Each structure stands twice: as structure tokens, then as C-alpha cells.
Simulated assay, not measured.
Amino acid sequence: MQSQWQCLLKNLGEWHGSFTLFLPAGELREDVPTIVSLEGLDHNQTIRQTIQRYASPTAADELVQDSEPIDEKVLVYSALGRGVLFFEDGAFSQGSMQFAPFSEFGAELGLMAGDRRLRLVQLFDRESQLAQLTLIREHRTGSPAAERPPLTLDDLLGQWQGEAVTIYPDLRSPTTYSTHLQISRTEENQIAQQLTFGEGGGTIVQSTAIVNGSRLQFDQGSLPVQVLLLPDGASASSPVYIKTGHSFFLEVGWLLQADQRQRMIRSYDKKGEWSSLTLVTERKLAKL
């Protein structure tokens, strides 16, 4: 098994993309072109990370490279913080270790597919309300910049068979298991979802959602959960607000092909403590 640092090194390179800010209801607020570079120093024992933000969207990378960034941040580090975990393909999540009322809270979840990355940052305000989401779409220098179309509900309908890997903040051995997700439309503006997962298919979760444009609203549980359908085949799942004494999760999804999807889930327990990180790779078996 690779070390966490070795998994981080899968992200080395220069990544061109944009930081796209959305409000909780899915309204786009701004789209900022970016170049993020991760450079290995001292035989890759140290990482120098540079984040450059540019003034306005441009049609070609060359135009970004020839202009001056409006903002630049440089980070240099030789160790990883407690709030971050990596999978062996370089996918990762970093963020708050603990939810607490009256404090800001949030996390970043990042997926990788070859020379492309998709990252999502979900932030909650001091009132524990979902405040904003930032979708980050990137490709390595020299690789195609092609993106998937915006995700639609029809893309999700069907039966999905997956394999999940769960890793833990205390670095105990990972857990692997199969998943089965079925999403079907029951009415014009309503869907039903059934998720089966765990060893021997031991856990079954059923829920329904109201379809409201690009939002799927699940209101049956102890915390209302919404799924936003986003550009580049992405989706963002989270509670609308967080309350103490309730477990919850943050999730990003990425439709890589019509029948192939990745999901990452960052889970918190009833005490508000970060408990696990799960990466699901799934394929569509049939459309319903």
C-alpha cells in the first residue's frame, strides 16, 4: 500500500481550470480562471503549491498564461495535516475535523481521472447553514480540456453497481465493499432512490426527492439534504443545514462517461467528528 504522501504525489503538475462559485440554490455567482501548480522539491520530500487566479474567463490557455494573475498564493509543506486523506489514485479530501455550532465549517473533495481533476468545496456559515459551493474543474498542462455536459437527472436514472473503498482518519486498514444504487422517476417532479451497501449488502437506505430544476431535495431524514446538478457531469450533495447530535455527510459525484461515475463521501458522526472518507466507482447496469 502506498503512503499518504506517495498518493499526494499523483497530483504533481500544472493544472489549468477555473473556480466556479455557486449559491446553495445553484445560482452561479462567478467563474474565475486559475492555474494551480504542485511542484516536488528536495526529491519530492517537500511540495510547493502555487495558486494563481486570473481576471476573467478566456477562450484559450495561452491567453491565461500570457496575462498577469490578479492573485497568487504560495504554500510550501513537507507533511500532511490531520484533516486530509488521499486514495491511491490521488483523489483526496481535506477540511474540518469537527463540526461545532457558531463556527464556520467546510471541506474540499477532489476526484481524479487521468489528467483531469474535479474538486468541490462546500462551506457552511456560523449559523450552520450551507453558504456556498465552489466547483473546480482542471486539466494538466498539455492534456485536452474537454468537459462533460452539465449533469441532468436523466443521466442518473437507472441501476448503478459499484465498488467502494473507505479510509479512516486514524489510518486503520481500509474497508472495501460493493454498492448498488437504483434511481427511478416516480412522478414528473419526484424520484425514488435505493442504496444498498456494506458487507453482504447489509445496509439498505431508501429515500425520495422532489425535483426542483437542477436541485433534488430529500426531506425525509433528520436533516434535509439536497443534490445540486452541476457543470462537467458533477453533482454536490450535502445537508441544507447541520444540527448537533445528527450524523451527516458531504458528497461530490462525477459522471465520467454515460455509464461510469465516481462519488466521494466525507462522513461525520453524531458527535460532529469526521469519521471516514469513501470513494465509490460505479457503472450503470440499466436505465430505468
Rank of each mutant, 00 (worst) to 15 (best):
V84M: 10
S93L: 02
F197R: 12
D31C: 12
P149V: 02
S178P: 02
T176R: 15
L277I: 13
L285D: 09
I265M: 15
K271F: 12
Q260K: 11
I265C: 15
G221M: 11
L21S: 04
E188W: 05
H246A: 11
N212A: 13
P224H: 11
P57Y: 04
L109Y: 04
A209N: 04
N189I: 00
F102K: 10
S93P: 02
G213L: 00
S275M: 09
Q182W: 01
I35N: 08
H180E: 08
L23W: 07
I210Q: 15
T152Y: 03
F92D: 07
L41Q: 09
L288Q: 11
L229Y: 06
V165A: 13
F248A: 06
L195V: 08
Q122S: 14
T281H: 13
W160Q: 13
F249K: 14
Q2I: 10
R137K: 12
R185F: 13
V252N: 08
A59L: 13
A60W: 07
A234L: 09
A59F: 04
G202E: 10
I183C: 01
R29D: 05
R29F: 09
L195Y: 14
D31W: 03
R261H: 15
K287N: 05
Q132K: 15
E68Q: 14
V165I: 15
F105T: 10
F86G: 05
Q206K: 14
Q65L: 14
G158M: 09
W254F: 11
A113H: 13
F86N: 03
L285T: 10
Y268I: 07
Q159A: 08
V227M: 11
T208F: 02
S67R: 11
F22A: 06
N212P: 01
G221S: 13
R215K: 07
V121K: 04
K271G: 12
S96Q: 06
Q206Y: 02
M112S: 05
R137M: 08
D170G: 12
R266Q: 09
G162D: 06
I167L: 10
G201N: 09
R48F: 00
G81T: 10
G200A: 00
L41D: 02
S3Y: 04
R116C: 09
D61A: 06
A79T: 08
A131E: 15
Q49K: 07
R119F: 06
D71F: 14
T281P: 06
Q49N: 06
T203G: 07
W160I: 06
I51L: 10
E108A: 07
V240T: 15
Y77G: 03
E88M: 06
S78T: 04
L118G: 04
A25I: 03
Q159Y: 04
Q65F: 07
